[in-house]
C-alpha cells in the first residue's frame, strides 16, 4: 500500500530524514517509533504530501503520492487542534467535505462517527465546551471521516483516560477489520506491543530497527527464561543467575545451555510450572537501548516475560 524508498529530507544542510525505506502492507497496524527529534514528523509530513522529499520516492498504491490521494490518507498529527468556537458537528462535517464528501453526506457521516465515540449528545455544542478528552475524540473523528484507506496517527492516546484508550483501540481494530491500514506513531511502547504488527524505529533520521514486534523483542532478548511457579526452584545446572519477584523467576542461562534443557530439568525435578517463556525485553527497553547506542551510551534492558511462552510457540 505504502512504500517509502530511500527518502531524504535536509534542513539547513542537516539530514532530518536520511535514506529511509520501509513498506506498510494493506490492513496492518504499523508502528513508527523514534525519540523526539528523530525525524518522524518530517517523515509523516512527506507521506501526507505536506512536505516534499529532497530525494527518494514515496509510493501509494504503487505510484507517487498525489493530490487525489489526500482523500485516501488521513492524518492525526501530534500537534493538533480544532476550531474552538465552531460547533462539533460543523468542524467534523468540514473535514468530511475536505475529504470529498458532499455537505449532506459529510454531516451524516459526522453524526455517525460522533455517536460511535459517545459524543452524540455534544454535536451541537461549541468545541470549547468539550473536555480535553472529548476534543481528542473529535480529533480522532477528523481522521476517521471519509473512511480513508490509510490512517496516520501521531500519539493518538495522549491525554486519554483508560476507558477512552480502550475505545480508541476498539475503533482501530474495527477499521483494520474493514481493511484500513494504520501507521501509528507513539511513545507508548506497551500500546505498540498490544496493537501493532510491525514497527520501524528511526533515530537521527535513520532506520535503526525494522521488523515485526515479536521479532524485534526476540532479537534483543538476552539468554534468559521466565518461569512462574508456586514451588521453590532448586539450583539448576547451567543457570548463571536466578532472581525472583512475586512467584516469577528470571533465570539467566549459560551460553551453551538451551531453554529446552532448563524446561526438561524442571519437569524432571517435579516442579509444577504455571508458565515458562523466553525472557524478552519490553519494547520500551529496546527503544532506550537503541537510542542510547546511537548516543554512545549503553544501558542493558530489563528482562520481562513476554507473551511468547514456549507453549504459545507450539511446544
Amino acid at each position: 500500500m505504502l512504500r517509502v524508498l530511500e527518502v531524504t529530507k535536509t534542513y539547513e544542510e542537516r539530514p532530518v530524514v536520511d535514506r529511509v525505506s520501509f513498506e506498510v502492507r494493506p490492513g496492518e497496524i504499523f508502528a513508527l517509533l523514534g525519540p523526539n527529534g528523530a525525524g518522524k514528523t518530517t517523515l509523516i509530513r512527506m507521506i501526507t504530501d505536506i512536505l516534499r522529499p529532497d530525494s527518494g520516492e514515496i509510493l501509494f498504491d504503487g505510484r507517487p503520492v498525489e493530490a487525489r490521494d489526500r482523500r485516501e490518507i488521513a492524518y492525526l498529527p501530534e500537534e493538533r487542534g480544532l476550531y474552538r468556537r465552531s460547533r462539533v458537528i460543523d468542524v467534523l462535517a468540514y473535514f468530511g467535505e475536505l475529504k470529498g464528501l458532499a455537505p449532506r453526506e459529510a454531516r451524516k457521516s459526522a453524526r455517525t462517527l460522533l455517536d460511535r465515540v459517545e459524543l452524540g449528545d455534544w454535536l451541537e455544542k461549541q468545541v470549547q465546551a468539550l473536555s480535553k478528552g472529548m476534543q481528542q475524540k473529535v480529533q480522532l473523528c477528523t481522521a476517521l471521516i471519509g473512511e480513508p484507506r490509510l490512517m496516520i496517527l501521531d500519539e493518538p492516546f495522549t491525554g486519554l483516560d483508560p476507558l477512552n484508550v480502550q475505545l480508541f483501540e476498539e475503533i482501530l481494530h474495527e477499521r483494520r477489520a474493514a481493511g484500513t491500514t494504520v501507521l501509528l506513531s507513539t511513545h507508548q511502547m506497551s500500546k505498540v506491543e498490544q496493537v501493532c504488527d510491525r514497527a520501524l524505529m528511526i533515530n537521527r533520521g535513520r532506520v535503526v530497527l525494522h521488523g515485526t514486534v515479536r521479532d524485534l523483542r526476540r532479537q534483543h532478548a538476552d539468554h534468559a527464561v521466565v518461569i512462574r511457579t508456586e514451588d521453590t526452584l532448586p539450583n539448576l545446572p547451567g543457570v548463571l543467575a536466578m532472581t525472583t519477584t512475586n512467584g516469577e523467576y528470571l533465570l539467566t542461562l549459560e551460553p551453551q545451555v538451551s531453554s529446552d534443557e532448563v524446561l526438561a530439568a524442571l519437569v524432571q525435578r517435579g516442579i509444577r510450572i504455571e508458565s515458562f517463556g523466553i525472557a524478552t525485553p519490553p519494547l520500551e527497553d529496546i527503544f532506550v537501548k537503541v537510542v542510547n547506542q546511537g548516543l554512545g551510551l549503553e544501558r542493558e534492558p530489563r528482562m520481562r516475560d513476554g507473551a511468547e511462552t514456549l507453549a504459545g510457540k507450539g511446544r
Binding site: 509530513r45 501526507t48 504530501d49 505536506i50 493530490a67 489526500r70 490518507i73 488521513a74 492524518y75 492525526l76 498529527p77 500537534e79 493538533r80 487542534g81 480544532l82 476550531y83 474552538r84 473535514f95 475536505l98 475529504k99 480529533q139 477528523t142 481522521a143 496516520i152
Partner: peptide, 17 residues
C-alpha cells in the same frame, strides 16, 4: 492567525494543500 494558534493547520494540510 486563529488557525495557527489553535494548531489545526497540520490536520487541515493533510486534507488540502
Amino acid at each position: 492567525s486563529e488557525e495557527k494558534e489553535s494548531r489545526i493547520l497540520e490536520s487541515l494540510m493533510c486534507h488540502i494543500n
